[in-house]
Design a protein around this nucleic acid. Structure first.
Lengths: 223, 223
DNA sequence: CCTGTATGAATGAAAG
DNA sequence: CTTTCATTCATACAGG
């Protein structure tokens, strides 16, 4: 991974001036890495397992255990249902394309390569490749790049040219001081926000933090 | 991996206590969460895959997996705990902006003035003004107007339509401000096939992959 | 606690 | 390309 660059992030949203950062100790850091490593291992092994099972059905593997284990890890829940809702007549909704994680990875990767001009030809190519990972059309690709570019640009534009406005009071006025018993951490204690809709680092994280930089879609692997 | 933060120390009470700590921005934090979320999802998918592949299996397998999974949970908990307690920094990435009453009043007033074109310049002005009443960013203002307009429009769209209801059976699926509890459609970001080509995909739909290809999750595992 | 709702934010698509 | 719209996702809060 490489988000080491991340210089001076500075405000994503409600904090003009003041910078909020997460602070962790080395041990916490290490813990985190371990956690990810565990996931990595689990995933890899599961993949292996699946290969075997797929190879020969009779492979009498005690898969049930996986289920149990995974359920333990699983923090969120809901699994999408089957496509159409009970009513059956529904299904008319959702006409808008939603990139699959695989597609997103590829798109981000390509975007990072800097080619700012998707050019018709390129679009076609990309579309073709993405088609391997799910339904998609050239228009989708085109729009995606259009939006991606526009938004990443806007982000870096909003960056206050300087720090002149060193406010003196802000950031305390935050209404509520809520400190809500932290959300984001599901009851299980695991910090994953929500199992659904995962996206590999959209990295344009949002609002207007700048960062016109690379967002390699690779998952970070603690070595 | 090392995301050394550069400037912008913030160091919390950088004096006694830990001398060096890792600092992450909201973006980084979020990125991390997403990565973990990705793993989680992958695991879930793999498990689902297994469910399908192996109808029923006896259990008596490799406890190692189970242990690993549990370990993951454990680490997850530990992680959260320690992080929360340490710097006391809000671990919550991205809390959303909440307008203060003063800000809301002003926003509403401006909105009523009819200028439907917030235009960048206007946004800046307004933001500036609102800053006097609490933390806020241009994006917040921008979003606010965006949402305000969209929602007021939708509202008036729902109200009038009770006079000449054309269709006969379109009553319940109508928008309704009911705010559809979503989740009726897969939330994995998987795209639902256009109504014009839904043919296959019936049994193992969401279970594992949206694409009718060898799902070998391998592709998701960058070395 | 859990659930429903209002609303801030993200984003695909389209208009300009 | 830039701006706007429409739809959806996620979360802060109020009620049970």
């Amino acid at each position: 991974m490489e988000w080491e660059k991340e210089e001076e992030e500075q405000q994503s949203q409600q904090n003009n001036g003041m910078v909020y950062v997460k602070v962790m100790t080395d041990e916490q850091m290490e813990l985190l890495q371990k956690q990810i490593a565990v996931y990595t291992t689990i995933c890899e092994q599961l993949v292996e397992m699946h290969k075997n099972v797929s190879a020969q059905q009779d492979l009498s593997g005690p898969l049930s255990f996986f289920h149990l284990a995974m359920l333990g890890v699983k923090l969120g829940n809901l699994y999408c249902d089957s496509v159409m809702t009970s009513a059956g007549n529904k299904m008319t909704s959702r006409q808008r394309w939603t990139p699959t994680t695989a597609q997103l990875q590829i798109l981000e990767r390509i975007f990072d390569e800097g080619i700012g001009t998707p050019s018709k030809q390129k679009i076609k190519e990309v579309t073709n490749e993405l088609m391997q990972h799910g339904q998609i059309s050239e228009t989708n690709v085109y729009n995606w790049f259009q939006n991606r570019r526009a938004r990443s640009k806007r982000k870096q534009m909003v960056t206050p040219p300087n720090s002149a406005e060193s406010e003196v009071e802000t950031e305390d006025d935050f209404p509520k001081e809520k400190k809500t018993n932290s959300e984001n951490i599901n009851s299980n204690g695991i910090m994953v926000p929500r199992p659904d809709e995962i996206c590999f680092q959209s990295s344009e994280i949002n609002s207007l933090s700048q960062d016109p930089r690379p967002h390699t879609a690779a998952i970070m692997f603690p070595s």
